[in-house]
Simulated assay, not measured.
Amino acid sequence: MLDPGHNPTNYLHTKEINRLVGIGTNRKACDTTGTETDSGYAEASYTLDVSRRVRALLTARGAKVVLTQDGDRPYGPCVDERARIGNQAHADAALSIHADGAPAADRGFHVIAPKSLHAGAADTRAIAAPSLRLATTLRAHFKDATGEPFADYLGGGKGLMVRGDLGGLNLSIVPKAFIECGNMRNSQDAAELTDPKWRQRAALGIADGLTAFLEGSSQGSAGGKR
């Protein structure tokens, strides 16, 4: 299951996306508009484009791919529904695709895995370990394919974080991760994110990471032998 972050027309539905929904541990907004580059290239456009590219690559390899949205919804879906789509599909792996909106001086990508928690409607204890393996495998293959550095502004520069405050991860019952492919506010990252050729490399890195995870094979050069 691929989850293209946000939605290109969320900005037209602020009332709907500001509605609070349960994320297991507490309540948060249904969705947000996402960020954009200084030139106005929206995160939601990036995530949808890359998700479609990943789908094409994985489908050609024989995978069945479900998207949470394919530009076919006026807004959202909400973060709780995004998790539910992956759960109901009994996905072997799920990935939320995003790009960050950090300060302009910050650069790089990072991958997020769910924290092992049991609170309210959230119970990630069974998926925490495989999700961390998914995240580290994705991190290695994405770096190999794109050359993008690990984020220098969080996670100790390791390109990996474990969090318990993201509804799409908290409510998942299948192995799931979340990738921030770069910082849209950084000029170097923005030049890459807006380049179709680089987006194809990003899609290849994601597809290779998901394939390696599903096949149980070794990680890329950033985390071990291929």
Rank of each mutant, 00 (worst) to 15 (best):
M1F: 07
D3W: 03
P8I: 11
T9M: 13
N10M: 09
I17K: 02
R19A: 15
L20F: 14
V21L: 11
G22C: 12
I23G: 01
I23E: 00
N26P: 00
R27T: 14
K28D: 07
C30V: 02
T33M: 07
E36F: 08
E36H: 14
T37L: 06
D38F: 09
D38L: 14
G40A: 09
A42C: 12
T47N: 08
D49P: 04
S51I: 04
R52G: 04
L57K: 12
L58K: 02
T59H: 15
A60V: 13
R61L: 13
A63K: 10
V66A: 11
D72W: 02
D72Q: 08
P74T: 12
P77G: 06
A83D: 02
A83H: 00
G86Y: 03
Q88S: 13
A91H: 02
I97Y: 00
G101E: 03
P103V: 08
P103F: 01
D106Y: 09
R107S: 12
G120F: 01
A122T: 04
D123G: 05
D123F: 10
R125S: 14
R125V: 12
A126R: 15
I127Y: 04
R133I: 04
L138E: 06
H141F: 15
A145C: 12
T146C: 08
P149G: 06
D152E: 08
Y153P: 01
G157D: 12
G159Y: 03
L166T: 02
G168R: 05
L171V: 07
I173G: 03
P175M: 06
F178T: 00
I179T: 05
G182W: 04
N183M: 09
D189Y: 05
R199K: 11
A202W: 00
A203N: 03
L204N: 11
G209K: 01
L210K: 00
L210S: 02
F213P: 00
F213Q: 02
L214K: 07
E215L: 14
Q219M: 15
Q219Y: 09
G223D: 03
G224W: 08
G224T: 11
